[in-house]
Nucleic acid binder design. Structure first.
Length: 759
DNA sequence: CCAGTACTTAGGTTG
DNA sequence: TAAGTACTGG
C-alpha cells in the first residue's frame, strides 16, 4: 500500500477512515484532492465495489482529473465503474433513466441559461409585463433560488412571505411567471440546470422504490467542495446516504464562493446535526505556498466572522513578499503585468505555464489579452464563451436537439427560420401563442393545424410543414446512423453548411465559424469511435451531456506552455507558481454589489483568500487609478483588501514611467509587433485590430503625426483615400475621407488606424 | 420579410 | 464600449 506513504499523518487518517459519516475540513493547499482520490483508491483496495461508490465534484474538470488519478492507482478499468461527475451530470443520467416516472421523455432537453432567458422573455411578453420591472436575469434568479430551495410553483404562490417580498419589490406576478415557466419547460420536454437537482429531489421523494434502489447502489458517497452545495444538493445527498451513512464530505468554509447560486454554508453545520457521531478531520498543513503567502492569507480571512476555526500553516520557505503595483490606467495595468511576466520568464528561464492572471470579472481579460498578443506570448483564456456556446455551434446543436426531442421549443424558435426559410417573426408569434393557449408545444401545433388552428397564410404553413418533414426525416435515422454520419447529413440538409460557406465577406471570423462546425462534427466522430461495444453510437446519445459541457476541448491545439487567464471563481482548486491578481479596486473587487451586507462582503473576502492561495511562489496584486467602463473613464481607488493584508507581507512598487512620450512610443512599437497568432480559443472580439487606445495622445497632448486635410491616407478596409474634412477633438476626432472605391466615409481617427501615404 | 441603422442600457461569479 | 433591441425603408 505504497500510496499511504505519500500522505502526512492527518491525511492518512482521513484516507483510512472509509466507513461512517466523515467530514474533512481542508485548508487551502492542504492536499484535499489527494485525500479524496486516495480515499477512493483505498476503499477499492479494501474490496469495496466501485459500482457502489458515488463521487460528486463541482466541475467537470475536477471529475476528469480525479478519475484519471484513481485510474493510475487502481487501473482504468475499475476506475470507470465509479459514478463520478458533477451533481448535474450524475443526476441528469439518473433522471433520464427514470424520466417516465416524472412524465418527462428520457431524452429530455437540458435548457442552458440562454434557453431559459429566451423562454422567460417570451413569457413576460405574453403577460405584457414591463420588462424594466421584470428583468429577465432577476426573474430567472428568483426562480432558480426557489428551485434550489425546493419551492414548487404552488408553494411559491401559497407562501405569504414570498408573496409579500415580491409585492415589495414590485414584482407581484412572479408566481404566475414561475408557474408558466415550469409548465412550458415541461411541455417542451426540457429541464433547466436547476431542474436537474429539483426533479431529482422530486423523484427521490415521490418514488420510494427508486430511492431505495439508489440507496443500495450508492453505499459510499463522497462530496467534494461541500461548502458550495445548495439545499437541493444537500437533500439529495442526505436521502441517498440515509441507509448506510457512508458519507464523506470535503470542503473548506473559507473557500465558499458560490452563495450567489444558492450555496449554503449552513450545510456544513447541518452535517453535525444530521450525523451526530460523525468524524471530523482537519487538514491544516499547506504544501503549496510560501510562508509569506500563507500568513498573509490567514490574516485576511481572519477578518471574517462566519467561519470554522482552523490554523493553516506551512513548512515551506519564507518566500518573496507580495508585490503591490499601482498603475494610472487599465491599459497600463495590462502592459505592466505582462511585462513583468515577460521579464520574469526571460530572467529566470521559466515557461509561461508558470504564470496565471486572475481577475474578478471576465471582461477584465481584454487589456491583458491585447498586450499578450502584441508580444506574441502564448496564452489561454479559460471561461468566457465556450465552444458549445458559439452561435454557429448552438444553431447546429438546435437541429440535433430537435431531432432527439421535437418538442424543444427553444430549439425550434432558434432554427425554424435559420437558414432563412421565409418564416417570419409574426407567424412564429402566432404559432407560439396558439401553442401556449392549448398547452402544447410548437411542434404539436405545426403538425396538426386542424386541431390547433392558427391564422397564418398557406404559404407560410407549407414552409413550416416542410421544416417539420425535414426534422422527421432526421429523426427517422436517429437509431440507424452513427452520430457523426447523421450530424453531417443534418449540417448539409438543414442548409447550415451552405449558409456558412457562402458567407459573403470571408473574413477570418466566417472561416472560423465554418471550421467550428467541422470541428463539432469531428468531435462527434471521436465520440462514436470512443463508444465501446454495446454502447449507443447515436446522435441522441451524444446530445445527452452536451448542455453540461463547459470546456472548449481544444487544449491539444494550444501551445501547452501558455499564460493562464481566468476568473478567480474558476481558479478554485488550481495552483500556479506565479499569480498576478489584477483589478484590486473598490467597486470592482470587492464588487460594488457586495457592499451592502456583511455576508456578501465576507464572500468577496473569501474570494480574495482563494485568489491569494492559488500562488505557490509569488503573488502580485495590481490596481489602476482609472478604468474604462461603458466607454467612460472612471477613477478608481485601491481595494480595501490590499489594506487588509498586513504591511509586513507587502512590497509596494510603482512601475517606471518615463513620461508620456515614451509611453506613446512604447504603444506604437507594440502595434507594429502585432502578429496576431490567432487561435480559436480566443474570443472573437479579440480578433479586431488593436488601435491606439493605449496611446495617451488624447489626454496628454498629441505626439503622433498630425493628420491634416488634403493628406492621402490608406484605410484597412476602404483602401486609399483623401482627407476632406476634420472635426471634433481628442478622442472624438473624426475625419471625412473620400475613397475612390467606396465613396466618402466619416471615421473616428481613434479607430481608423490610418496610414499616412503623403502630404 | 429583411437588412441596415438608431437607440438603449448594461451590475457578476457557474453547471 | 458593446451587445441587444426597436425602428425604418426597401
Amino acid at each position: 500500500m505504497s500510496y499511504l506513504d505519500e500522505l502526512n499523518e492527518s491525511q492518512r487518517v482521513a484516507v483510512e477512515n472509509i466507513h461512517g459519516p466523515t467530514m474533512v475540513i481542508a485548508g487551502a493547499g492542504s492536499g484535499k484532492t489527494r485525500v479524496l482520490t486516495y480515499r477512493i483508491a483505498h476503499m477499492m483496495e479494501n474490496k469495496i465495489d466501485p459500482f457502489n461508490i458515488m463521487a460528486l465534484t463541482f466541475t467537470n474538470k475536477a471529475a476528469k482529473e480525479m478519475t484519471q488519478r484513481i485510474g493510475e492507482i487502481v487501473g482504468d478499468g475499475e476506475a470507470r465503474n465509479i459514478t463520478m461527475g458533477t451533481f448535474h451530470s450524475v443526476f441528469s443520467r439518473i433522471l433520464r433513466y427514470n424520466a417516465d416516472r416524472l412524465g418527462y421523455p428520457s431524452n429530455f432537453t437540458i435548457y442552458d441559461t440562454q434557453d431559459s432567458k429566451s423562454l422567460l422573455k417570451e413569457i413576460l411578453k405574453g403577460f405584457s409585463l414591463d420588462d424594466k420591472a421584470y428583468k429577465v436575469s432577476n426573474v430567472l434568479g428568483r426562480i432558480s433560488s426557489a428551485k434550489n430551495n425546493l419551492i414548487s410553483p404552488d408553494d411559491y404562490s401559497n407562501n405569504a412571505n414570498i408573496q409579500s417580498e415580491d409585492k415589495m419589490s414590485k414584482r407581484p406576478e412572479m408566481a404566475k411567471i414561475y408557474r408558466a415557466y415550469a409548465k412550458r419547460c415541461f411541455n417542451a420536454g426540457a429541464m433547466d440546470f436547476d431542474d436537474l437537482l429539483y426533479q431529482t429531489n422530486v423523484l427521490l421523494r415521490d418514488f420510494p422504490d427508486v430511492l431505495a434502489h439508489y440507496q443500495q447502489k450508492f453505499q459510499y458517497i463522497l462530496v467534494d467542495e461541500y461548502q458550495d452545495t445548495n439545499y437541493s444538493q444537500y437533500l439529495i445527498v442526505k436521502k441517498l446516504a440515509a441507509v448506510y451513512e457512508n458519507i464523506c464530505v470535503v470542503g473548506d468554509d473559507a473557500q465558499s464562493i458560490y452563495s450567489f447560486r444558492g450555496a449554503n454554508i449552513q450545510n456544513i453545520l447541518n452535517f453535525k446535526k444530521d450525523y451526530p457521531d460523525f468524524k471530523l478531520f482537519k487538514l491544516e498543513q499547506n504544501y503549496r505556498s510560501t510562508k509569506n503567502i500563507v500568513q498573509a492569507a490567514n490574516g485576511v480571512i481572519a477578518r471574517n466572522k462566519d467561519q470554522i476555526k482552523k490554523t493553516v500553516w506551512t513548512d515551506n520557505v519564507e518566500g518573496d513578499k507580495i508585490t503591490v503595483v499601482r498603475t494610472l490606467t487599465d491599459n497600463e495595468e495590462g502592459r505592466v503585468v505582462i511585462n513583468k511576466i515577460f521579464d520574469k520568464s526571460k530572467n529566470e528561464g521559466l515557461g509561461y505555464k508558470n504564470f496565471a492572471i486572475l481577475y474578478r470579472t471576465n471582461r477584465q481579460s481584454r487589456t491583458f489579452e491585447e498586450t499578450l498578443r502584441k508580444l506574441s506570448i502564448p496564452y489561454r483564456i479559460y471561461g468566457g464563451l465556450s465552444f458549445y456556446q458559439r452561435k454557429e455551434i448552438k444553431d447546429l446543436l438546435a437541429y440535433f436537439r430537435l431531432t432527439a426531442n421535437p418538442h424543444d421549443n427553444e430549439a425550434i424558435k432558434r432554427v425554424i427560420n435559420y437558414p432563412k426559410r421565409g418564416i417570419g417573426a409574426t407567424s412564429m408569434q402566432k404559432v407560439l401563442i396558439a401553442a401556449n393557449e392549448y398547452g402544447v408545444s410548437f411542434w404539436d401545433v405545426i403538425n396538426d393545424f386542424q386541431t390547433y388552428p392558427v391564422d397564418i397564410n398557406n404559404g407560410t404553413i407549407n414552409k413550416m410543414l416542410d421544416f417539420a418533414t425535414m426534422i422527421k426525416s432526421f429523426a427517422a435515422q436517429l437509431d440507424r446512423l452513427d452520430a457523426n454520419i447523421l450530424a453531417e447529413e443534418i449540417a448539409k440538409t438543414s442548409g447550415i453548411l451552405k449558409e456558412l460557406r457562402t458567407d459573403k465577406d470571408k473574413g477570418p471570423e466566417e472561416v472560423e465559424r465554418y471550421q467550428n462546425i467541422e470541428e463539432l462534427i469531428s468531435a462527434i466522430q471521436t465520440f462514436v469511435e470512443g463508444q465501446i461495444e454495446g454502447e449507443s453510437k447515436s446522435l441522441s446519445e451524444f446530445m445527452l451531456d452536451v448542455a453540461l459541457l463547459t470546456d472548449a476541448e481544444e487544449d491539444n491545439k494550444i501551445d501547452p506552455d501558455h499564460v493562464t487567464l481566468m476568473t478567480i471563481h474558476s481558479s478554485k482548486g488550481l495552483e500556479f507558481p506565479h499569480v498576478y491578481l489584477v483589478g484590486l479596486e473598490e467597486n470592482l473587487f470587492p464588487s460594488q454589489l457586495a457592499l451592502n451586507s456583511r455576508t456578501e462582503l465576507e464572500e468577496e473576502r473569501r474570494l480574495f483568500y482563494v485568489a491569494i492561495t492559488r500562488a505557490k511562489d509569488t503573488c502580485t496584486l495590481s490596481y489602476s487609478n482609472s478604468r474604462f467602463q461603458w466607454g467612460k473613464l472612471i477613477t478608481c481607488e485601491a481595494s480595501r483588501f490590499i489594506d487588509e493584508v498586513d504591511d509586513k507581507f507587502l512590497s509596494f512598487e510603482t512601475p517606471e514611467r518615463m513620461g508620456g512620450r515614451s509611453l506613446n512610443n512604447r504603444g506604437s512599437s507594440f502595434d507594429r509587433s502585432f502578429t496576431g497568432g490567432l487561435n480559436k480559443s480566443f474570443t472573437s472580439k479579440s480578433l479586431k485590430p488593436i488601435n491606439s487606445i493605449n496611446s495617451k495622445s488624447s489626454i496628454k497632448g498629441s505626439s503622433e503625426l498630425e493628420i491634416k486635410v488634403g493628406y492621402n491616407v490608406e484605410h484597412d478596409r476602404f483602401g486609399k483615400g483623401k482627407i476632406i474634412k476634420l472635426e471634433g477633438a481628442d478622442a472624438d476626432k473624426k475625419a471625412t475621407i473620400f475613397f475612390p472605391n467606396h465613396g466618402s466615409k466619416t471615421v473616428l481617427l481613434r479607430f481608423a488606424n490610418l496610414k499616412i501615404l503623403d502630404f
